[in-house]
Simulated assay, not measured.
Amino acid sequence: MERRNNGGRPKAVERRSRHLNIRLTEAEYAKLRGTSGSLKISAYARRRLLGKTVSRSVPQINQLAWEELARTTANLNQLTLHANQGHFAHSEEFAQVLVRLSHTLKTVREGLIGGKHGHR
């Protein structure tokens, strides 16, 4: 009879068996703790030491605003689609306003999330 998977965390492909111990001043530790966000300090330090990207945590208020702007952007994209398909008359001025509005929304969203293209 085949043994069933009981769930839980999958086994690591390569077990971390090596230790790296460092000493920090209180100021260094506080800075590290402040920049690690929601990550454990060890996970944050490992990612930084190995040159991997570290996503920044986003304040809840910014996350809510980001989501609302995402809906607004989707609506703008639908308006643009309908305009381009000829569902309603539009002028060159209308098209330019849609483009400017799209760029403005993108800039605001990037400012809220703290980077380009949604990188956190």
Rank of each mutant, 00 (worst) to 15 (best):
T25D: 09
N6Q: 13
R109W: 00
G118T: 01
N5V: 06
L112F: 01
V54G: 03
T73V: 08
G51R: 03
A89F: 12
R47K: 15
A27G: 11
L105H: 03
F88K: 01
T25C: 09
V108D: 02
R16V: 13
K40N: 12
A27I: 08
T72M: 08
A65C: 14
R9S: 13
L64K: 12
R46S: 07
Q60F: 12
A74C: 11
L69W: 02
E14C: 02
R56G: 07
G118Y: 07
L101C: 06
T104G: 00
V13C: 10
G114S: 02
L24G: 06
P10Y: 06
R48P: 03
K106I: 11
L64V: 12
E110V: 00
L50N: 13
E110N: 10
S55N: 14
N75R: 13
T72A: 14
R4K: 13
N75Q: 14
G8V: 05
L76F: 06
N6L: 12
V13P: 00
G7I: 01
P10N: 12
N21E: 12
E68L: 11
L39F: 03
K52S: 00
Q85D: 08
H103G: 10
E68I: 10
G111C: 11
N84E: 13
N77T: 10
G115R: 04
K31V: 08
P10S: 10
T35Y: 10
R3Y: 08
N6C: 08
I61E: 11
G118N: 05
G37S: 09
A83H: 03
R109V: 01
A12T: 01
T80M: 12
R48E: 08
R56F: 06
T104W: 08
Q60K: 15
N84W: 02
G51K: 05
S38A: 10
L32E: 11
N5I: 03
V54F: 01
H82G: 06
G37T: 01
V97E: 09
T80F: 06
P10Q: 13
E92G: 06
S38Q: 12
N21G: 00
N21I: 09
